[in-house]
Design a binder for these strands. Structure first.
Lengths: 252, 252
DNA sequence: CAGTGGTCTAGACCACCTC
DNA sequence: AGGTGGTCTAGACCACTGA
């Protein structure tokens, strides 16, 4: 228990593996999240418990948790405890869906699964998801509707091993949030994503589904989503109809 | 000097205007930034100086500065001091230009001003920039090129009062970063922006400038940029050619 | 060398939640 | 009443910078 503390003594300060104590604590907490010791929605031990367990002061644990809370890995609630972040919380829903209505509010979001089948990874998918070419994958097509308007047509690629029994029936019973489903049923929690946005002309399939003319401009959003340890676990191509909606982004 | 501290005593804890000490310190530092007491690139006083000045502990000042550094208002540099953030720093350049090459690196960015004239605000611009309709505004058109490829065609609306002598000549001598120019010459520092992204068909002007076919899909980025105190000071419509480039966004 | 931010500690008191 | 996170303090020592 005291091993890593000694690395913080002056004699070890110049070690190539040196990092501040609170970063090491952060690593230990992260390991608990990865291993499933504390699952999404769970309370983690109190600051003083963790301080005692790791043999550091409460302030050091606090700084570690502060960082993780700032990155949406943990959620602090005064008087109750610190919780593992979860996609079941509807408040954090639009963190991964930056869609807004041009006027008024978005309402009555509906996710409509269209297809779901298993296949073998081609070179592109394999590279993106860090799989072997030919590894089993799952392909999902689905439509997002807001009220009467179709908004997004998604094509989603998942590593087959992580989602054993995922089928159309599961998707249909899964509610509106895929990430919620992934988390609850397969223990795969999405924590970060990289998106690339382009404007493209609607092909036949997209234009039919989104109710626009073939060739009209669509916003193409390519997303790679990562779970703990920067492991890619989803590749997604979304065609956004931006006549009534837009992609909202804040630069700070 | 001790006035606001007394608000933190138990007797004042339930005051409707109560806020933590470090938030009040943050407000005081922010006021120094707004008033120009410390300009972009300047060092602000050390933590212990500020602690003495405001009559609080160094840790409280530290927490205030930590927050402001997390929001890119200040930049800490160990051993040197804490500095007011500036757009002159090339490292923070792509914070407001989320453009990346589909393959390889972006290189040799060039900003080419095309037009610059003064006009009176219509209702849309007036509403967006919180001006009276008819107030003086400046309209700029410019092209961004990366190497041999035209990348972005921007149309920019500014409140005329804040940029007294802004002309084509000034723009031509201003370097590649507009925000750098605004900061250095007019003391207007951009700190935050809201963007709305859509896909649109290229009109005649855009297609000519961006060297694409008329009607081909372009990424339209509408941006409202704010300075201190959430004051809007720029409205911008950018047409992005996304054949060789894409808009990059990280979701955390 | 002195001054700056960075880390770590120990302890006090507060606000919030639950029992 | 007892536990949680939230705020604030005081002090120690370290790492980095520049004169």
């Amino acid at each position: 228990m005291l091993k890593f503390i000694s690395m913080n003594k002056p004699s070890a300060m110049h070690s190539p593996t040196f990092s501040p104590l609170y970063q090491q604590i952060r690593g230990l907490i992260t390991r608990g999240l990865e291993s499933g010791e504390w699952g999404p929605g769970d309370v983690i031990p109190s600051e003083s418990d963790l301080a005692a367990r790791f043999g550091v002061s409460q302030g050091t644990v606090r700084k570690a948790i502060d960082e993780m809370a700032a990155e949406n890995l943990l959620v602090r609630r005064q008087g109750k405890g610190t919780f593992v972040a979860t996609h079941n919380d509807p408040r954090s829903f639009f963190r991964f869906l930056r869609l807004a209505a041009n006027e008024g509010e978005l309402k009555s979001l509906k996710s409509i699964p269209l297809e779901c089948w298993r296949a073998k990874a081609g070179t592109d998918v394999a590279r993106t998801l860090a799989l072997e070419p030919g590894a089993p994958i799952i392909i999902i097509r689905r439509l997002l509707r807001f009220g009467d308007h179709p908004a997004v047509f998604d094509e989603i690629y998942l590593p087959g091993e992580l989602f054993p029994d995922l089928t159309m029936d599961v998707l249909k019973s899964g509610g509106t949030s895929l990430y919620s489903l992934f988390e609850n049923r397969y223990g795969v929690r999405m924590i970060r994503a990289d998106e690339r946005l382009r404007a493209v002309a609607a092909d036949r399939v997209s234009s039919d589904l989104l109710d626009v003319a073939e060739g009209s401009p669509l916003l193409l959003v390519e997303r790679v989503t990562f779970t703990y340890a920067n492991k890619p676990v989803e590749w997604r191509r979304g065609f956004y109809s931006t006549h009534d909606f837009h992609y909202h982004n804040e630069l700070g």
